[in-house]
């Protein structure tokens, strides 16, 4: 189902995800990182990706968690020494730095889960197909071949099993060589057939002129408003970040962060950037809920109770 943030124009979605990645890698501040992580998580949950997230979570935690372990073991910078492990000083700064890096890595990985859900291949192709038409065609053909080859491999397996070539029975050595026979048939068949496709493309005039493209997406009013809001708040945050706001200093000595007016403005615009898609999702959920409960908060009044025919229609 395509609604909420998933239904916005691809350029809006791309801007949002590029912005998320930029902020995750640029803003090195626990408050900003935690806010971004929370926003991405709530977007994921609102998009119904909770199950998907849970499945990959052990892997993500293992990958990001190892950073927390390794940084204090190998980095001994910092002035607050907590204790000694293997004759090496473990500093508070190194542990904090490792924790922040864990947040950065987790945020980046979560952003990609949401990206995979929102930016489907057709949207990506719509954006980059005009910039790099040949690469786009190559990527699209490859993507299209993957399910085709899987299906073909199933057919080959079925046919070859009638002459005793099968990967599911026999000794390991026989199974392996049978599997390779199946793959070789797939390769020959697909190459032979694909070259016919190529000749047919050529016969229809591929490569004579510049490739034209067809775009199915249109920027509507909601998209333009969202785009402007995202670009504005994102730029404001970036400008403040280049002024040096939104950074904590950990090395060489941990400093307690001081919050000034600049930080507050930056945090405000940062939150606005993060929460626009979340807002779109919530609005969508709310509309559905109202729709299901049948008492529309909309302008169209709905009569309650049994519907009597009016005198005129009678």
């Amino acid at each position: 189902m395509s609604n909420g943030f998933r239904s916005v124009h691809p350029s809006v979605a791309l801007l949002y995800y590029v912005g998320l990645l930029l902020f995750a890698t640029l803003l090195f501040h626990p408050l900003f990182l935690l806010t971004e992580l929370a926003a991405v998580l709530s977007l994921l949950l609102l998009q119904g990706q909770g199950r998907h997230l849970l499945r990959g979570l052990p892997f993500y935690l293992l990958m990001a968690g190892s950073v927390v372990l390794w940084n204090p073991l190998f980095s001994h910078r910092g002035s607050h020494i907590l204790f000694y492990a293997f004759d090496q000083p473990i500093t508070l700064e190194a542990i904090l730095y490792g924790l922040m890096m864990m947040l950065v890595l987790l945020t980046i990985m979560f952003v990609f889960i949401s990206y995979n859900f929102t930016m489907t291949t057709d949207k990506f192709m719509y954006l980059f197909g005009t910039v790099a038409p040949k690469s786009a065609l190559l990527i699209l053909m490859t993507i299209r071949f993957v399910p085709l080859f899987q299906r073909r491999l199933g057919q080959i397996t079925l046919i070859q099993s009638s002459r005793g070539i099968s990967v599911s029975s026999g000794k390991l050595r026989k199974r392996m060589s049978d599997g390779m026979t199946l793959l070789k048939v797939l390769l020959t068949w697909s190459l032979e057939e694909a070259l016919q496709t190529a000749d047919s493309m050529k016969a229809r005039g591929y490569g004579i002129r510049k490739r034209s493209t067809y775009g199915i997406f249109k920027l509507d009013r909601r998209d333009i408003i969202t785009l402007i809001c995202l670009a504005g708040s994102g730029m404001l945050t970036l400008i403040f970040s280049m002024q040096g706001y939104g950074m904590v200093e950990i090395y060489p000595r941990l400093k307690t962060p001081v919050y000034t007016g600049g930080d507050a403005v930056m945090y405000g615009s940062f939150c606005m950037f993060l929460l626009i898609p979340v807002g779109l999702e919530i609005k969508e959920k709310w509309l559905w809920r109202s729709f299901e409960r049948r008492d529309f908060p909309s302008v169209i009044p709905i009569k309650k109770g049994p519907h009597y025919m009016t005198s005129r229609s009678r």
Binding site: K134, L137, L138, M141, T142, F145, L191, A194, L195, T197, A198, D199, M201, K202, Y206, G207
Partner: peptide, 8 residues
């Protein structure tokens, strides 16, 4: 086009 398809 043949080469493109071969790569794909």
């Amino acid at each position: 086009s043949r080469e493109l398809v071969l790569l794909a």
